[in-house]
Design a protein around this nucleic acid. Sequence first.
DNA 1: TCCCACTTGAGACTGAGTCTAAGGAAGAAG
DNA 2: CTTCTTCCTTAGACTCAGTCTCAAGTGGGA
Lengths: 165, 165
Amino acid sequence: MKPSEQFHEIEQFLADRSIRLTLQRQHVVQRMVKREHFTAEEMVKDVQQTHPSIARGTVYRTLALLQENGLLEKHDFRQGAPHYELTHGRQHHDHLMCLQCGEIIEFHDDKLEAVQDRIIEEYGYQLVSHSHKLYGLCGVCQKKGKKTKKANAKPPKLRVMQSVE
Amino acid sequence: MKPSEQFHEIEQFLADRSIRLTLQRQHVVQRMVKREHFTAEEMVKDVQQTHPSIARGTVYRTLALLQENGLLEKHDFRQGAPHYELTHGRQHHDHLMCLQCGEIIEFHDDKLEAVQDRIIEEYGYQLVSHSHKLYGLCGVCQKKGKKTKKANAKPPKLRVMQSVE
DNA sequence: TCCCACTTGAGACTGAGTCTAAGGAAGAAG
DNA sequence: CTTCTTCCTTAGACTCAGTCTCAAGTGGGA
């Protein structure tokens, strides 16, 4: 979906709910549709570059507003501040991240979702959302790792990852 | 595993790697083995209750030390500060959290892990770790929610505001 | 015993996010 | 149109979690 299309969908979505899309909010959303992932502070800087008069608080409030209405998702990756991404009109997906180079892959798997639904049900919960993140090394970094192996005298990490079959 | 057992295992683990378990660190670990999940600040308060002379910095440094050595895992839940939990000798598990009351349930599912392994393989990644969190409403909060349901069924009204672009 | 690296306490500092007061639009009512 | 009311915004102070620095303390090995 093109940025402008996405913008108009969001515009419509908010209008349908009589949520004001003020000029300031428009500017923020305009920046957002042009990006995949971004942090709150990145967005503040980004918006202030072209509109210095827009306050930090306004950007944060807009982020919160969109989140409340399910248009925006917040992702806590391990390092740094949480990232945001627009979800409207996009299929749900989870993330796979390379710990070395930081590459983020989005994936979707029906089976995974199904298993999840079953688990939730077992506990009598009503699912609102979920966050599923896989951390590892991408193909490229695996090869690099072998060559440029760090001389870290530290003992191997005790990470027990349950492996099946 | 009993707290005291867990403490001794950790003691041993560190000794094997010639990592000093100073008095201050002992106090921190002592508190940790008595808890399931905790935030860094909770741990600071907890430790300072009985040992007021132990500094914030020391607690944070101890947390970092245990993390580096794979004894402690950090979990970013959506609200508030990240939680920590000791992992040594415990089975891997994922988390299910109630957004209303904050209850955290630990679960483990072989099928889920299997599906995950398959996905990772598809992308040529080597899995290091993962974080899988489900957010929802527990049975109790679902019932509560129905009573105090907000009247948010506003009639769709379109407000036209000046448009950017 | 002395040395030196490791560890600590205290407190300043930082980054991210929240809150508040006062002023500014926008729709509603008259 | 004018006034009212409500929502929204700016600016900046504030909070919270976490990090950094530095002088002082500790402790194990030569």
